[in-house]
């Protein structure tokens, strides 16, 4: 079990992590979701023994992560970014090198097989595709058979196909009974992979629950989006049937959160006719973790 309590870290007077705390059960996939600069990476690095917190406690499977970083590092596996690899070493050489840092090491052949890198055994890292590099980065994280694996934005920069392939691998690691701790700014990823999610903003955890329950807690279950136009007051939209909330994003979008999609839509079209609205880019979708974030912070996770 992982226990984090009241973590605080400041840089130059700014609190990057401001009293973060949570518990993660063994075998759980736990996600930190938040925009860039929310404090996800700093939180993870303090849990990995890479940074000393100003205050707070980190305990992983009975090991005090702050006072015993050397012991901690034997039981955790980390993945940073695909760029943190040696370009001029081959896949197999990288595995042998990282394996040599630990007391125990899984057989390289087995790792290459389970990460679908057998054919790339002798290929230099610089010649691997983005997806292959990221698979290697995760293979290196589990080279010593760790109980806990930290993945920092594992699918950032990958195309949809490579991303899905990586999700398969992460779910497989969960099946092996490992505890996974990952950060992401893709809500879809958090919904697909994580048993529980902590949503972070400005160094604080602002919500923590299963993805389904977080979405259910929203007053509305659907979202209508269109390009915002000037000259119409939000009050017009609030009067539509089912609308619970009206938001304008920094990116120039109007969002209507509703619990009655059909009712709201049938009121929106006559309203648009009356007011002369174009409704550019109109679309509807189910509420997601993104909307949870929006509701709690008034901001979007990623600007579209």
């Amino acid at each position: 079990m992982i226990r984090v309590r009241n973590l605080v870290k400041s840089y130059g007077g700014t609190r990057v992590v401001d009293g973060v705390g949570f518990e993660v059960a063994e075998g759980e996939v736990f996600g930190l979701l938040g925009p860039n600069g929310a404090g996800k990476t700093t939180t993870m690095e303090m849990m990995e023994g890479l940074r000393k917190p100003d205050r707070g406690e980190v305990c992983l499977f009975g090991v005090d992560g702050i006072r015993k970083p050397a012991k901690l590092k034997e039981i955790i596996g980390i993945q940073l970014q695909s760029t943190a690899l040696f370009d001029h070493l081959s896949t197999e050489e990288s595995i042998l090198l990282y394996g040599s840092f630990y007391k125990k090491m899984r057989p390289p052949a087995e790792l290459l097989r389970s990460f679908d890198l057998e054919e790339k055994r002798r290929t230099l890292v610089k010649h691997l595709s983005g997806g292959q590099r990221q698979r290697l980065a995760i293979a290196l994280a589990v080279v010593h058979d760790p109980r806990v694996i930290f993945l920092d934005e594992p699918t950032t920069g990958l195309d949809p196909k490579a991303r899905r392939a990586l999700w398969e691998i992460i779910l497989h690691l969960k099946e092996e009974g490992r505890t996974l701790f990952l950060s992401t700014h893709y809500m879809e990823e958090a919904e697909q992979l994580c048993d529980r999610v902590a949503i972070m903003d400005s160094g604080r955890v602002i919500a923590l629950d299963t993805p389904a329950r977080l979405i259910r807690q929203l007053a509305s279950d659907s979202v209508i989006e269109f390009a915002a136009e000037r000259g119409v007051s939000d009050a017009h939209f609030r009067e539509l049937e089912g609308v619970k909330e009206v938001k304008r994003t920094d990116g120039g979008w109007m969002l209507l959160l509703t619990d009655n999609l059909r009712g709201t839509l049938s009121g929106l079209i006559p309203l648009a006719d009356r007011e002369g609205l174009v409704l550019n880019g109109l679309r509807t979708r189910s509420a997601t973790l993104e909307d949870v974030f929006l509701e709690r912070t008034g901001k979007r996770l990623t600007e579209q």
Binding site: E48, G49, L50, K73, L80, A84, F101, Y102, K103
Partner: peptide, 13 residues
């Protein structure tokens, strides 16, 4: 800069 050293710092090395 590329995080290679930090990656190694995350091991018992």
């Amino acid at each position: 800069e590329r995080g290679i050293l930090r990656r190694m710092q995350g091991t018992p090395l």
